[in-house]
Design a protein around this nucleic acid. Structure first.
Length: 878
RNA sequence: GCCGGGGUGGCGGAAUCGGUAGACGCAGCGGAUUCAAAAUCCGCCGCCGAAAGGCGCGAGGGUUCGAGUCCCUCUCCCGGCACCA
């Protein structure tokens, strides 16, 4: 078939995709003869259509998949759908269609988009988390967790919309009001199921060290989130009784501290507004009650917290210092968190900056118990060294005087243990994972409520508990409450009529183990099987940094639970992680008093550039009036600055979109969208095609039947072309190892630049070009698979480029007779000199000193010292 | 506040072990082609300077024959966490 002269991306991509479909090219089959490579991109939520972030994510995964396939790995790249979730319910409310229908039609559409981008996905492994054959295993493992005490029930606080009678997610609460009703949101205590991720805190933290191929920042974010601190938990005894006459908290005010060495400096205690002692004290103290109310209703927004003034009120209650026996007053402080530790702190104003400020504000005593050298302590202002535990030594502390940090903590902890009133303890920031959601479109929690037997787990043989797919939520409450066919059931224990649990699981549960299920398609007898033993762990995981904490932490936790249940042997699911940067575009807006902010899409404005080509502003095409330029920001629906992948594919093709995304920025960095950049990428592919046409018409006819390249001495031009190609190949291979794809794309461009300039008028030239263009096509093929597939096949290289071996640079092609060295005088580059390839340092020195560049700048002075860096430069010191 | 990451032409970004800073591309400028335009092709393209040359990788200092790269001080930007006791 003759190769058309003009690059037709639509036809090219269609042909290639048909070939892949026909040959089932991406089917992954277990094969122990080859090293396996499991490449996984985070599966999408089927929100409607793909956005550019998806395209970038999956292109990175596809490049790695295809590259490893050509390198001889047995690769698997699956795809699925994170199909449960709130947006489907919102769409259902708006369109009056069941969430299932909306979800399945989105999946259909987005699957078509993924296919049109040419990703090497094994669709036979496709899964959707909303299908019973998938979520059955959520339920099954949940039951195992219940048995092991990892899953448990307790009350939780939720946002309650009193008008719709429904629970709201945090993002549905806007300025304290329900997003649909505008009603003031209440806090409600309702029961829910929790997973005891804290039981795994130590392991989740410790195993971070084994994740060498994870970005450092992700590991740090997880470590911070887990938040381990070691210290002492101890109690201040008291005899404060409630109305019924019983001691509050058994007469102990428990606190946690990492600075037990400063216990002798405690001058007061502070408790959270929700603390029982605060509640008690407020009963006969309206001022305190009002303050507590203010603390509780106060904003929990970060920005407010940061600027919030530390405030407090005394309770009038006193507790006893466990070591000195002194009476210590209890305050309520707005800075004490009920959710961390015991909701109370000891206050040592002398050695804690926050306590210091609080004590100064309310005129509370400040007692120094730590000294650093001869430094003078004063209560005038806080000094950094007051909190220095490295160099501090205890003073004014009675029997504990003269001890360093560790010795003091040990001695004090020992005494508290002896008094049976304290212990060394590790405190975690991490909290257990509440998985109950009062929502319809999610995985049902397999529990049955019986009046006699209580909450009874659904027996394994009754799994899955299937969610009805035909409900249409109307925004008021969970529609399952109206489904008697779902609701009514028999108690598995006593057989009496009972009610099914209507809460569903957090969708993070669904995504916590899908990677393992991809390796076990179609098995309805087991969650995972021996095929998963073959494929797991995931060799390369790719996704957005926004999942650095929750999704990745839950997946790690889930894996460890699966291990403890005996399902898997590995400790961690993802051996290597790449967090790709976001895709940005220009933002334009106009603010008016009448309509508020109006957004303008980038193609609805004309840019105003300054003399140097920088964007300084824009005008709307509609009315010619100026709009505000907001710089680059993430693509979003509201800001109208998204780019539609389908429009891209239609106009330029998938290969151009893929090439642009790989070329414009390294994968971890943000990527700024640019129409001109897209044009540039398209131009490059058109040139690749044009060279393919030259190859077909001018090169191939010249090729001799017997190739002589390996035994022929090439002339300078051909040798340097070949060297240039092999050098760029070497560079590309190095960069692929680093996962730096932008420079791989650069290397491809450099190869084409060299090829276009090459002589093409002899049989041997044709042979060199044949080899070189073959290298270019293969290096380029993971990035732009369609065009390279077609050229490879049509130009006679072989049937399927994906089956071709990845090229390796040849030493013979890289070798050169003469090398050019940079000549420096006193470290400044002055020129260059050519030396024979095998020249020794002595000879090189002589040639360099004799060179024109050196002679001019040495000004007749003798060389004091000459440094030769082999293959690079010569530096002459005078 | 703490912890990370970063600052290189008009722009996106290269520079592997301390060894020619600005690869590759975009934008811009000049030219060829064209009736003209688009497309395409060729050339130029950090700053100062007529040139020789000098200066240049956030700022300042240091180590070195040689520093974007190593060390110290400062500064700004981005991300995460945060009254965490």
């Amino acid at each position: 078939m003759a190769l058309p002269e003009k690059y037709d991306h639509t036809a090219t991509e269609k042909t290639a995709q048909q070939y892949w479909d026909k040959t089932d090219a991406f089917r992954a089959v277990e094969d122990t003869a080859k090293p396996k490579y499991y490449c996984l991109s985070m599966f999408p939520y089927p929100s409607g259509k793909l956005h550019m972030g998806h395209v970038r994510n999956y292109t990175i995964g596809d490049v790695l998949t295809r590259f490893h396939k050509m390198r001889g790995y047995n690769v698997m790249q699956p795809m699925g759908w994170d199909a449960f979730g709130l947006p489907a319910e919102n769409a259902a409310i708006a369109n009056k269609v069941p969430p299932a229908q909306w979800t399945y039609s989105n999946i259909e559409y987005m699957k078509g988009q993924l296919k049109s981008l040419g990703f090497a996905i094994d669709w036979s492994r496709e899964l959707a988390t909303c299908k019973p054959d998938y979520y059955k295993w959520n339920q099954w493992l949940f039951l195992r967790m219940l048995e092991k005490g990892i899953a448990y029930k307790k009350t939780q606080t939720v946002n309650w919309d009193p008008v719709d009678q429904t629970v709201l997610a945090n993002e549905q609460v806007i300025d304290g009001r329900g997003w649909r009703t505008g009603a003031v949101v209440e806090k409600r205590e309702i029961p829910g199921y929790y997973l005891a991720i804290t039981q795994y805190a130590e392991e989740l933290l410790g195993d971070l060290d084994t994740l060498e191929n994870w970005p450092e920042r992700v590991r740090l974010m997880q470590a911070n989130w887990i938040g381990k601190s070691t210290g002492v938990r101890f109690a201040f005894p008291h005899d404060i009784k409630d109305e019924s006459g019983s001691l509050i908290n058994d007469g102990k005010l428990w606190v946690f501290t990492t600075r037990a060495d400063t216990i002798m400096g405690v001058t007061f205690c502070a408790v959270a507004a929700e603390h029982p002692l605060a509640t008690h004290a407020a009963k006969n103290n309206p001022e305190l009650a009002a303050f507590i109310q203010k603390c509780k209703s106060g904003s929990v927004m970060e920005a407010d917290m940061a600027t919030m003034e530390k405030e407090g009120l005394p309770t009038g209650l006193f507790v006893t210092h466990p070591l000195t026996g002194e009476q210590v007053e209890v305050w309520v402080g707005n800075y004490v968190l009920m959710s961390y530790g015991d909701g109370a702190v000891m206050a040592v104003p002398a050695h804690d900056e926050r306590d210091f400020g609080f004590a100064k504000k309310y005129n509370l005593p400040i007692k120094q118990v730590i000294a650093v050298g001869d430094k003078i302590f004063s209560t005038d202002a806080w000094q950094e060294w007051y909190g220095d535990k490295e160099h501090g030594v205890t003073i004014h502390s009675g029997k504990y005087d003269g001890l360093g940090y560790k010795a003091a903590v040990d001695a004090i902890a020992d005494d508290l243990v002896a008094k049976n009133i304290g212990e060394k303890k590790t405190q975690w920031r991490l909290r257990d994972w509440g998985i109950s959601r009062q929502r319809y479109w999610g995985c049902p929690i397999p529990i049955i409520h019986c009046d006699d037997c209580g909450s009874v787990p659904v027996p394994d043989d009754q799994l899955p508990v299937v969610l009805p797919e035909d409900c249409v939520p109307d925004g008021s409450g969970n529609p399952l409450h109206k489904r008697s066919d779902f609701l009514n059931c028999a108690c598995p224990k006593c057989g009496k009529p009972a009610r099914r649990e209507t809460d569903t699981m957090d969708t993070f549960v669904d995504s916590s183990w899908y990677y393992a299920r991809f390796a076990t398609p179609g098995n309805d007898k087991a969650m995972v099987d021996e095929r998963a033993d073959y494929w797991m762990t995931v060799d390369q995981y790719i996704g957005g940094i926004e999942h650095a904490i929750l999704h990745l932490l839950y997946s790690r936790f889930w894996t460890k639970v699966m291990r403890d249940v005996g399902l898997v042997k590995y400790r961690e699911p993802f051996s290597r992680l790449l967090t790709q940067g976001m895709v940005l575009n220009h933002i334009f807006s106009r603010r008016s008093d009448k309509t508020g902010i109006e957004w303008f899409s980038p193609d609805s404005v004309d840019l105003i550039l300054d003399a140097s080509g920088r964007v300084t502003g824009a005008t709307a095409k509609r009315d010619g009036q100026p709009v505000d330029y907001g710089g680059y920001g993430t693509m979003s629906k509201t800001k109208l600055n998204g780019v539609d992948p389908n429009a891209m594919i239609e106009q330029y093709g998938a290969d151009t979109a893929r090439f642009f995304m790989m070329f414009t920025a390294p994968p971890e960095q943000t990527l700024e969208w640019s129409d001109a950049g897209i044009e540039g990428s398209y131009r490059f592919l058109k040139r690749v095609w044009a060279f393919g046409h030259v190859f077909a018409t001018q090169i191939r006819p010249q090729l001799p039947t017997t190739r002589t390249l390996a035994s022929t001495k090439l002339d300078d031009k051909l040798a340097s072309l070949r060297r240039e190609i092999h050098l760029n190949l070497k560079q590309a291979n190095y960069d692929l190892g680093k996962q730096q794809f932008n420079t791989v794309a650069s290397s491809c461009m450099k190869m084409l630049n060299a090829l276009e300039k090459a002589p093409r008028d002899s049989a041997i030239a044709a042979e060199v070009i044949e080899e070189c263009f073959g290298i270019l096509l293969r290096v380029l093929s993971p990035i732009t698979p369609h065009i390279t597939h077609t050229l490879w096949a049509d130009l006679g290289y072989g049937e399927d480029i994906l089956q071709a071996a990845w090229p390796e640079p040849l030493d013979a092609a890289l070798a050169q007779d003469e090398i050019e060295l940079v000549v420096q005088v006193l470290g400044k580059t002055r020129g260059s000199v050519k030396v024979p390839a095998g020249a020794d340092n002595k000879a090189i020195e002589a040639l360099a000193i004799a060179s024109e560049a050196a002679q001019k700048f040495m000004e007749g002075k003798p060389a004091k010292k000459v440094i030769v860096v082999p293959g690079r430069l010569v530096n002459i010191v005078v």
